Computed example of a mutant assay.
Amino acid sequence: MFLPNKFYLSALFSMLAAGISIPAQASFLEPIKFSSAGEVTLTLDESVGGFDHILELSSVIGDIGLPNIALTDVNDPSASVLGYSPANIGETFSLGSFAAGEELIFRLTNVESARLGNPGTLGGQVFTGSSGSLNPDPSAYYVYWTNLDPNTIKVYLEDLFPISASSPDPVNEFLTGGGYDVAFTLTLSPVTVPLPAPAWLFGSALIGLIGIGRRK
C-alpha cells in the first residue's frame, strides 16, 4: 500500500530512532556510481582463482591500458601479471575524481597463469554496469555490488562462471557459492562545495543586522 510522503518519512524516522537498519541498495546489473561528487579510492579485499587478472576502468573490449591493477591468487601468487606487480590485499588505489552520478565502469581481463593455462595469455573480459552487454552472457550475473553507506560501495567480480539470472537466491549463490574471484571496496571522499557569493553576502548582512539589533 502506498503511503503519503509525510507518513513514509515519519515511519522512516521512527525506524532510525529505534535503531532498525534500512537495507542498503544492491544490484547485479545496475551501474556503479555515487550520488555525490568527489575522489574515489579502491581497496583490494580479495583476489583468488585459477586465472590472474587485470582490473581497469574501461568500457570497451580492447588492449590492456594504464593505469591498471594487476591481480593474482593470494594463496598461490604469480610473481607478475603481464609484467606488472600484483596488488596486495588491503592495498588502496586512487581512481580519480568523479561527478555526482557518474558511472564507474570496470573491466576485468583474464590472464592465464601457471595455475591455469599458459602464463601471460590473455583470455576474455567482463564488464560492470552499462557495459555489461559486452559480457559473454549479458543476462547473467558477473558482478554484484552493494552500497554499505552513501560513500562506500563493495564490489564482487567473477571472470568465467556467472550466476544465472534465474537463480532462486542469486546473492547467496554469488557470495557463498564460489561466485566471484575479486572483491574490492570503493570509498568516496566527497567534494566540499562552497556557498555561492550571494549566500555569503546574505549571511554577512544577516549577522550585521543581528549585531545592530543587540546594540539597540
Results as ranks from 00 to 15, higher is better:
P4V: 10
K6G: 01
F7Y: 15
Y8C: 10
S10I: 00
S10L: 13
S10Q: 14
A11I: 02
L16P: 01
I20K: 14
F34A: 13
S35P: 02
V40L: 03
V40I: 14
L42G: 00
T43C: 07
S47R: 01
G49Y: 06
F51C: 08
H53W: 05
G62E: 02
I64R: 03
I64Y: 07
I69D: 07
A70M: 01
T72Y: 12
D73C: 15
D73P: 03
N75C: 07
D76N: 14
P77L: 05
P77R: 09
S78E: 15
S85Y: 00
P86M: 11
P86S: 09
L95V: 01
S97F: 04
S97N: 12
A100I: 06
A100S: 15
E103H: 03
R107D: 01
N110K: 08
E112V: 00
P119R: 07
G123H: 08
V126S: 07
S130C: 05
G132K: 13
S133E: 04
S133K: 10
S133L: 10
L134W: 08
P136T: 01
A140G: 02
Y141W: 05
N151F: 07
N151T: 15
K154E: 14
K154A: 15
S164M: 02
P168S: 10
P170H: 09
T176D: 09
G177K: 12
G177T: 03
G179D: 05
Y180T: 08
D181T: 13
D181G: 11
P190M: 07
P190F: 06
P190D: 02
T192C: 04
L195I: 04
P196L: 02
P196Q: 08
F202H: 11
S204G: 11
A205T: 11
I207N: 06
L209A: 15
G213S: 14
